[in-house]
């Protein structure tokens, strides 16, 4: 089995993370923001897995499982909130729902 170099994996995960971050920063639709966050979480998960593989330890996989659960929980709550927001404001534009100003 050809081992993929850990650097490549990390590079991919960084790229995915940055893509996700960019998505969070520039998308205005909440659904897309949530999806971008999912990408970020998965990027981190990738980094964990590759790290675990590199050191031959189970910790990385364990952390990935944790991240998956976390992401699932987050999506569940996040989507519920999105539904509520949509019902209340009839929009999913994040700019228009900026009520929490200081």
């Amino acid at each position: 089995m050809i081992a993929i170099p850990v650097e490549h994996c990390l590079l991919l995960s960084v790229m995915l993370f940055c893509l996700g971050l960019l998505g969070v920063l520039v998308r205005r639709n909440i659904i897309f923001v949530l999806m971008s966050m999912e990408i970020m979480l998965n990027a981190i998960g990738l980094a964990f897995v590759s790290g675990g593989a590199r050191w031959g330890q189970a910790d990385g996989q364990v952390m990935f499982l944790l991240v998956i659960t976390l992401a699932a929980a987050e999506v569940a709550i996040g989507l519920a909130l999105v539904l509520q927001l949509y019902q209340r404001y009839r929009t999913l534009d994040i700019e228009t729902i900026s009520k929490m100003k200081g």
């Binding site: 920063l25 923001v33 700019e95 900026s98 929490m100 100003k101």
Partner: peptide, 8 residues
């Protein structure tokens, strides 16, 4: 002032 209410 920093509390803009804009998540981005």
């Amino acid at each position: 002032l920093t509390q803009t209410g804009r998540m981005q």
